[in-house]
Amino acid sequence: MRLVKRSYFFSVINRVIQQAKMPWLAVAVVMLSGCASMTEQECLTANWEDKGNSDGRAGYGLTRLDSHYKACANVGVTPNMQQYKQGREQGLKHYCTPENGFLQGQQGQAYRQVCPTDLAPTFLRAFTDGKQLYDAKQRITDVANDIKEIEHSLSNESDKAQRRYLRQKLRGMNRELQRVRHDRRYLESRLERARYYQHQ
């Protein structure tokens, strides 16, 4: 009797899923499969030195290899650690350049601390310059958005005292916007001496 009930229960569940077509379930499956660092086919045909090289060029840490172990375990493939590390070391030479360091900082990326000791200093200096420029641009955007909010509040405010306060605040924010724009121009002029910086 218990077996019949269990069978009936699962048949009902299966019928509900098929009727509803469960679009969220399909999305979940796609998302879960997308989390794997490698597909089964990639695991089966992997050249681990090439894989390490591409991961190094992308700036991945060695924890990326752990993800490959997990992804390939289902098909019985074990990554070749030695080949992977050799390839990754070569890939990092392309990632850990001053040009890329500046680009990573300018895009607001985090410093991954993956560069070898001989390349890390120049990469980090350029990264810091790029991050300063990123922060300057973000500050300009934030202040400009604050000004828009104040202007919107001012247009809808009827109380005289509050309007006076908002106008005073608006003047202060406009002065702040001028200051941060000046800081950005100064930073750009300083960075123009660095060969990795391209003015945008």
Rank of each mutant, 00 (worst) to 15 (best):
M1S: 14
R2C: 03
R2A: 09
R6P: 01
S7D: 07
Y8L: 15
F9T: 03
S11L: 09
I13P: 00
N14S: 06
R15V: 09
V16Q: 04
I17G: 02
Q19P: 01
A20I: 15
P23T: 06
L25W: 04
V27G: 02
A28V: 08
A28D: 00
S33M: 15
C35H: 13
A36D: 13
S37C: 12
S37Q: 05
T45F: 05
A46S: 14
A46L: 12
W48E: 07
W48L: 05
E49W: 04
D50P: 03
K51W: 13
G52A: 01
G52H: 08
N53Q: 02
D55M: 10
A58Q: 08
Y60L: 09
G61E: 03
G61H: 04
G61T: 07
T63G: 12
T63P: 05
R64A: 07
R64Q: 08
D66T: 06
D66P: 03
D66W: 06
S67E: 02
H68L: 13
Y69W: 02
K70V: 13
A73Q: 07
N74T: 03
V75N: 00
G76P: 09
V77D: 00
V77G: 02
V77N: 04
T78G: 00
P79G: 03
M81T: 11
M81Q: 14
M81S: 07
Q82L: 15
Q83L: 14
Q83I: 07
Y84N: 01
K85E: 14
K85C: 11
K85V: 15
Q86N: 13
E89V: 09
Q90P: 05
G91Q: 09
K93R: 15
K93W: 12
H94C: 12
T97Q: 12
N100A: 02
G101D: 04
G101K: 05
G101Q: 10
G101W: 07
F102V: 10
F102P: 02
L103E: 08
Q106E: 13
Q107T: 10
Q109M: 11
A110M: 06
Y111R: 10
Y111H: 09
R112I: 00
R112L: 08
Q113L: 12
V114P: 01
P116C: 05
T117C: 00
A120W: 08
P121W: 01
T122V: 14
A126E: 00
F127W: 00
T128Q: 15
K131V: 09
Y134H: 03
D135P: 13
I140T: 12
V143P: 07
N145E: 09
I147T: 01
E149T: 13
E149Y: 11
H152V: 00
H152A: 08
S153D: 11
L154F: 12
L154P: 07
L154C: 07
N156I: 13
D159C: 07
D159M: 08
D159T: 06
K160L: 06
A161H: 05
R167K: 15
R167Y: 09
L170V: 05
R175W: 15
E176Q: 15
L177R: 11
Q178I: 10
V180L: 14
R185W: 03
R185E: 06
Y186I: 14
L187W: 04
R190K: 13
R190N: 14
R190F: 10
L191R: 08
E192L: 08
E192Y: 02
E192P: 00
R193M: 10
A194H: 15
R195D: 15
Y196T: 11
H199A: 15
